[in-house]
Every structure is written in structure tokens, then in C-alpha cells.
């Protein structure tokens, strides 16, 4: 191990990342017309003062509608790829700290051993004031697999589990799932050390 190279340290994206990372069309993961239920996921990023974070960037990674990742290390042959879905997105918060992206609801994916993970979207959060990204996940309220999800189960406090579970807006014509990301303080979002 000692002769391995040291990895490059992370540094903050800073306040002006939009010039380099701004890709408005990457906020719609359905542009290629993939199979599956179209959903909108929206929310607000909030700091330790309860103030909106207007300079955050979220990157998203998820499986397709049947739970297959568009990646060579997902070698399963019984779960088909969707050539129209890459599974990656990026969205920045606006002046009010709000984000909104369009995607399809992912299928369940394998966990470790014989476990099955509930449908989820992996999120990496970048911002000024973050020297490295925070990782979190978005799950979906009402999904029966949430009860047995091996990652949600690692969160001892059931109240904190709720910080990862998006809720569907009742009044929406199409499915809008809401989930705020609280970086610090009361109701702080669960982040993962991956």
C-alpha cells in the first residue's frame, strides 16, 4: 500500500463554478426519451442558518427504469440497458436555493450480498464552503422496499432516515417529488462517507 500514489486532494468549486460546470440541458435526464415513469425532483438547499444556498451544484447518478446502471461494471445480463438513458445529470441551485431536475423513476438495484436496494438517486453536492462534495441519496416515499433497504437501515435514527425520502406533491399533475437538502442544523440531511 505504501508505494501507492497519494490521491489528489479535493478543493472547493468556489462561487463561480457556473462558467465551467453550467450545463442547463443536463438537468433533464429524459432528453433521450428513455423508458420509465417521468418524474420531477425539486427542492431547496439550505445552510446552517436556514438560509437558501444559491451557489450549489448537484450531480445525480441513477439506474434506469428496471434498475440497470449504464456502466461496464454492471455486468448483469438479466436486466436490460436502455440505450436512451445514461443515468447522469447535473443541476445548479437558483438565487432562491432551489433546484429542479427531470428524470425517470429508477428501478431497484442490488445491494451487498443478496440484498435489494430500494429505488434511489445518488447525489453529490458541491458548493462554495465545501472543500469536498457531500454524498447523499434521494428515495421515494411509499416505496415498500424502503423498509428493507440496506443503506437506509444503516441510519439508526428513523427520523433522520426521513431526510432522504422525497414526498410526492399531491396537487401536481405529473409526479413532482420534493426533497430539501439541509447542509447543517435541525433536520440535517443524512450524508454518506463513501
Amino acid at each position: 500500500m505504501a508505494d501507492r500514489l497519494i490521491a489528489t486532494p479535493s478543493q472547493t468549486v468556489g462561487p463561480f463554478f457556473h462558467i465551467g460546470l453550467g450545463r442547463p440541458d443536463w438537468a433533464d435526464l429524459t432528453a433521450g426519451n428513455p423508458q420509465g415513469e417521468r418524474i420531477v425532483v425539486a427542492g431547496r438547499v439550505i445552510d446552517g442558518d436556514g438560509a437558501p444556498v444559491p451557489d450549489a451544484c448537484l450531480e445525480l447518478w441513477q439506474a434506469n427504469a428496471v434498475g440497470r446502471y449504464a456502466h461496464p461494471d454492471d455486468t448483469r445480463t438479466d436486466t436490460p440497458l436502455d440505450p436512451n438513458f445514461r443515468g447522469f445529470g447535473r443541476v445548479s441551485t437558483n438565487a432562491d436555493g432551489n433546484f429542479r431536475f427531470t428524470t425517470i423513476r429508477p428501478g431497484p438495484v442490488p445491494g451487498r450480498g443478496n440484498s435489494l436496494q430500494a429505488p434511489h438517486i445518488a447525489v453529490a453536492l458541491f458548493a462554495r464552503g465545501l472543500l469536498k462534495q457531500l454524498y447523499t441519496r434521494v428515495y421515494f416515499a411509499g416505496e415498500p422496499l424502503n423498509e428493507t433497504d440496506p443503506v437506509l437501515s444503516t441510519i439508526a435514527d428513523p427520523m433522520r432516515r426521513q431526510t432522504l425520502i422525497a414526498t410526492r406533491s399531491e396537487d401536481a399533475d405529473s409526479a413532482i417529488w420534493r426533497l430539501d437538502i439541509v447542509m447543517q442544523g435541525d433536520n440535517e440531511t443524512v450524508f454518506f462517507d463513501i
Binding site: A127, V151, T154, M183, G185, E188, D193
Partner: peptide
Amino acid sequence: TVKRAPKHSPIPL
């Protein structure tokens, strides 16, 4: 970082 760092340690995954 003072208002943007989580108070809880990220959970090892």
C-alpha cells in the same frame, strides 16, 4: 465552511 459543514459525521457506506 462554518455554516455549510454538516454537524453529523457522514455515515460510512
